[in-house]
Structure formats: structure tokens, C-alpha cells
């Protein structure tokens, strides 16, 4: 029987395995979190089983709203920045010789082996007053005196982008290396300068990959909780920091769960909207 639906346990075994993994490692933990978010906190203890929407009601504070908006904005900003830099960067890599491409990709992957802690401290030193790059600029005569850039909004942006950039390139690389090299050439024979070609043909034909990468980097940077604490001031702390704080230091798991669930719903909604916007412009192939 070729093409028929799989019959019996044996035939379904290959699908059962990933399905089981998905349930054990994603569905069950999320179910627990969802359940806990309706539980009640036991002051001095852990939590008691309950069904109250009090945790969700408590979310509607100015602080939570402000942090939520800031988290989403900085992640969106980092995603845009990463793609804006990563897209031309990846394009130039794909135009290199095979060997040079491999070297660049290996360098990028090796960046991934650094832990977020190392990256954050490296940036905080690099942007510090005592040993940072501002000293170099003073030495070059471009600045009056050394200043501290960390912690701060731009230090946080640098750190988050640095972590997300390799992913950006690695996600953009496969579709871009599959791009028919004759497409830009065709555009040029039709009278488009190299710059026009890049924006009308290369960016245009990879629009869905760009949207996918934006979503990926956005979701990825939403989850960072260490970098904001090291490179940001308290007003730059993201919702992930708040959740960690609530869950670990105040041991208020129900409230932390409620925040996490709400955060997830909001980000999923945003991702959905982005995908819709990306789809709407694409002509629907039948």
C-alpha cells in the first residue's frame, strides 16, 4: 500500500516519537504554567490549588503595561536592526567564494557558543568609562573625555542585537543562497542600477524570508532576561526580568505564570499580525 494513511501502531511509530516529545516537553509544562496562573499564592509558602482570575486582574497596573510595551518595542527594534544589518551582510556572504562563506559562517556559529553572561559583561566593559571604547575615541581626538555608555538603552540594544545577529544570518542564509543569481543580473539588463536591483529584486523576492526572520529575532529577544539586568537601567528591564524576579526572588509563581501567559498571548497576537501583513502583500498563488 503506497500513499494510503498509515495503519497500525508500527506504521505510526515514527510520528509518535516527535509527538510524545512535543507533549512531554512543551504541552505539559505549558499546561502546568497555565494551571498555576489560576492558583493562589500562599504567603510564606508556595501556592494552593484554586481557580481565581486575581492574578490576571493584578496585571492591569501602570508598571506592567509600561514594561510590556517597552519589552515589545525593544524586541521589535532589535529585530528590525538585526535584519537591516544582517540582510545585506548575508547577501554579501552568499556572493563570496564557497570557502570564504564557510569561514564567515563558522565565525558566526562560534559567537553562539558564548553565554549571554559573557556577552553582557564584555559589552558592559567595552562601553564603560574606565576601559571602554570612549577612551579610544578620546585618544583619537574625537571626544573630550571618556564617558560611560553602560548601563543604558543603547548598551542594551547592542547586547541584544549581538546575541540575535548570528541567528538572523543563519536564518537568512539558506533562502538567500538559493536565490537565482540570474535574478539580479536580469534586473540589471533591464536598466536597474545595483542599488535599485538590491531593493526591488533581492529584497522583494525574499520578502517572506524577511518576515520570518523578523518574527524569529523578535521572539528570541523577548526571552532575554539576563542582558537587560546587566546592560540596562531598571527602567530598561523587560518583562522577562520582571517574571524572573517575581518567580525566583519573590517566589510568587502564580503571578509570574499569569504574566508569562499574558505576555505569550500578546506576542503571539503580534506575530500573527506580522504574518498577516506579510501575506497580504504577496499575490496568492493558486
Amino acid at each position: 500500500m503506497i500513499g494510503g494513511p498509515p495503519k497500525g501502531l508500527r506504521a505510526r511509530l515514527p510520528i509518535l516519537y516527535p509527538a510524545a516529545m512535543l507533549v512531554v516537553f512543551f504541552v505539559i509544562p505549558f499546561g502546568i504554567m497555565l494551571a498555576v496562573s489560576f492558583f493562589k499564592r500562599e504567603p510564606g509558602g508556595f501556592y494552593t490549588t484554586d481557580f481565581s482570575i486575581g492574578n490576571y486582574a493584578n496585571l492591569f497596573t501602570v508598571l506592567f503595561g509600561r514594561v510590556l510595551v517597552f519589552s515589545i518595542l525593544i524586541s521589535a527594534f532589535c529585530a528590525a536592526l538585526c535584519v537591516a544589518v544582517g540582510f545585506p551582510f548575508t547577501y554579501f556572504i552568499t556572493r563570496m567564494r564557497r570557502k570564504a562563506q564557510v569561514v564567515w559562517l563558522v565565525v558566526l556559529v562560534s559567537v553562539l557558543s558564548l553565554s549571554a553572561v559573557i556577552v553582557a559583561f564584555a559589552w558592559s566593559i567595552m562601553l564603560s568609562q574606565t576601559a571602554g571604547v570612549s577612551n579610544l575615541l578620546v585618544w583619537l581626538g574625537l571626544m573630550e573625555k571618556a564617558v560611560s555608555w553602560s548601563p543604558g538603552f543603547w548598551a542594551l540594544t547592542c547586547g541584544m542585537c549581538y546575541i540575535a545577529f548570528p541567528y538572523t544570518v543563519l536564518v537568512l542564509y539558506p533562502p538567500m543562497s538559493r536565490l537565482d543569481p540570474h535574478l539580479p543580473e536580469a534586473a540589471q539588463t533591464l536598466g536597474a542600477s545595483p542599488v535599485t536591483t538590491f531593493f526591488t529584486v533581492v529584497v522583494g523576492s525574499l520578502r517572506s524570508s524577511i518576515v520570518a526572520t523578523l518574527i524569529m529575532v523578535f521572539a528570541f529577544t523577548l526571552g532575554t532576561y539576563l542582558i537587560p539586568q546587566i546592560l540596562g537601567r531598571p527602567q530598561h528591564w523587560t518583562l522577562s526580568v520582571l517574571i524572573t524576579d517575581e518567580a525566583i526572588y519573590r517566589s510568587n509563581l502564580p503571578f509570574a505564570s499569569a504574566m508569562a501567559v499574558f505576555f505569550m498571548v500578546v506576542s503571539l497576537a503580534l506575530v500573527g499580525l506580522t504574518m498577516l501583513a506579510g501575506k497580504a502583500k504577496e499575490p496568492s498563488p493558486r
Binding site: 540570474h182 535574478l183 543580473e185 536580469a186 539588463t189 536598466g191 542600477s193 529584486v201
Partner: peptide, 15 residues
């Protein structure tokens, strides 16, 4: 892009 020669590629290279 300044020659104004129309070209049809083997892969056609339609956008």
C-alpha cells in the same frame, strides 16, 4: 544597466 540590451536567461530569471 546602461547598455539597454534585452536579455533572456536560460533560467528565464522571472521575478
Amino acid at each position: 544597466h546602461q547598455r539597454n540590451f534585452g536579455m533572456v536567461f536560460q533560467s528565464l530569471a522571472l521575478f
